[in-house]
């Protein structure tokens, strides 16, 4: 299972390195969302600084939608889906590989966005330990849920409109938990944030287990 996961993980990252869709499209889109927030919320009134944690994670969520679409559109064109089924790779391994490559891309995105909110919103990064741990577990949960719902929407004619409707309510707990933890860290009271980080860890484990169990039926074709 883990060997298969490593194969899919490597394949997806190689695809990204060669096509640079994430770098050229998803990351600029996320930065664009940050800029739009500044237009929508009067930058002079201090709303941006107070809402930094939430806006950061909304930007991550919206960009994650695009990353998930991308991760599964590369599997459905040109009959790749059949090739994947015939390859003999374990479905659980494919799932974990997808989660890994999604998580790596999202972490890279979060680094860029983090720099963005420090530079544009004047956020003061305190409580770095909590910030890093929260970002890691939240990203893992986001990637796991994204891989599950990405596979559910993959190949359907309505996938572009269906995926946000399925994925966003499912990852609402990530938005809530990560925002609370980030706010605690930025306010200098990391003690309030750790329970939320633990909750995010539970969410990630639940979705990882769920995906490992469910990816078999999801990859099956009628």
């Amino acid at each position: 299972m883990f060997r298969d996961a490593a194969l899919v993980f490597g394949k997806d990252l190689r695809l990204e390195l060669r096509s640079r869709v994430g770098l050229n499209q998803v990351v600029p889109f996320a930065v664009l969302v940050l800029v739009l927030f500044a237009f929508a919320l009067d930058p002079d009134s201090g709303v941006l600084t107070r809402a930094t944690a939430g806006l950061f994670w909304v930007a991550v969520l919206l960009a994650a939608l695009l990353a998930v679409q991308r991760a599964f559109s590369v599997e459905t064109s040109d009959g790749v889906a059949d090739a994947l089924r015939l390859s003999g790779l374990e479905p659980a391994g494919i799932f974990l590989g997808k989660v890994g490559s999604l998580a790596v891309q999202l972490i890279a995105l979060e680094v860029v966005l983090g720099a963005g909110v420090v530079l544009f919103y004047g956020a003061d990064p305190t409580g770095v330990g909590l910030l890093v741990v929260t970002a890691l577990v939240a990203t893992l949960g986001l990637a796991a849920a994204g891989a599950v719902y990405g596979a559910i929407a993959a190949g359907l004619r309505v996938r572009d409109t269906l995926l946000p409707l399925l994925l966003l309510p499912a990852v609402a707990p990530v938005l809530i938990g990560a925002t609370q933890a980030f706010e605690a860290a930025l306010d200098g009271v990391p003690g309030d944030g750790w329970p939320w980080a633990a909750l995010l860890g539970i969410f990630a484990l639940l979705y990882l287990a769920f995906g490992v169990l469910m990816f078999g039926p999801l990859l099956e074709e009628a």
Binding site: G155, L156, M214, P217, L218
Partner: peptide
């Protein structure tokens, strides 16, 4: 296909 994926959801 939809029935199976809906069951997972």
């Amino acid at each position: 296909v939809v029935a199976r994926r809906a069951a997972v959801v």
